[in-house]
């Protein structure tokens, strides 16, 4: 019986006939009960979710966030590379040309008039993040989106845009911090 051992954790099954104490069954029940009572007094690893959020690593991939630059202009230029990279085909967008009076809104001359990610399809692989040449899309640490309708889980641009640094500087700084952490990795 020379089987190849891939790990050193493998244990041979003991197939000897049970001895008297084992056949009594009672003793083994006592052993089992001792094991369970040890668990009874163990510290519980439960995280009380909505009140207590588990720490996640900086590389964690949660819901998407669409980045703005320092002046609060959207970075996305609707090049479609993220949609091409997406293995789940969750991203769709419509491009539009920036008008003259919209320079404070969009960084590039072309922008995404519509930008949708279907969160039911998304597998949170992060390839869109890698594909983006404009530093415009990131995966944040937010998770568990829920909704009563499927429609609600198709996220529009407004659902994902990072807060505007001009109007909401605090929220922007917080979201920006996450992105910067990611960049360091």
């Amino acid at each position: 019986m020379n089987q190849i051992q891939y790990t050193n954790r493998a244990k041979a099954v003991d197939r000897r006939p049970l001895n008297f104490i084992e056949r009594l069954y009672l003793w083994n029940i006592f052993i089992g009960m001792f094991i369970t009572i040890k668990h009874f007094f163990k510290k519980k690893p439960t995280v009380q979710y909505p009140e207590q959020v588990r720490e996640v690593g900086t590389a964690y991939r949660g819901l998407h966030i669409l980045n703005r630059d320092e002046e609060g202009r959207e970075r996305c230029t609707a090049c479609g590379l993220c949609a091409v990279a997406c293995p789940a085909e969750a991203i769709s967008m419509e491009a539009a040309e920036r008008l003259d009076d919209e320079e404070h809104l969009y960084r590039e001359e072309k922008y995404a008039a519509k930008y949708e990610i279907n969160m039911l399809r998304c597998i949170f692989c992060g390839l869109c993040e890698d594909a983006c040449p404009k530093d415009a899309i990131y995966l944040s640490h937010t998770f568990t989106p829920t909704n009563y309708h499927r429609k609600g889980l198709i996220y529009k641009k407004e659902d994902m845009l990072i807060p505007n640094p001009k109007t909401q500087p605090e929220e922007y700084a917080k979201a920006k911090g996450l992105i910067d952490d990611k960049k360091k990795k």
């Binding site: 009572i37 519980k44 009380q48």
Partner: peptide, 13 residues
């Protein structure tokens, strides 16, 4: 509760 504690959980709370 007993079930939870034996299974390293917290149970209804």
């Amino acid at each position: 509760k007993v079930a939870a504690f034996i299974q390293d959980r917290i149970g209804p709370n």
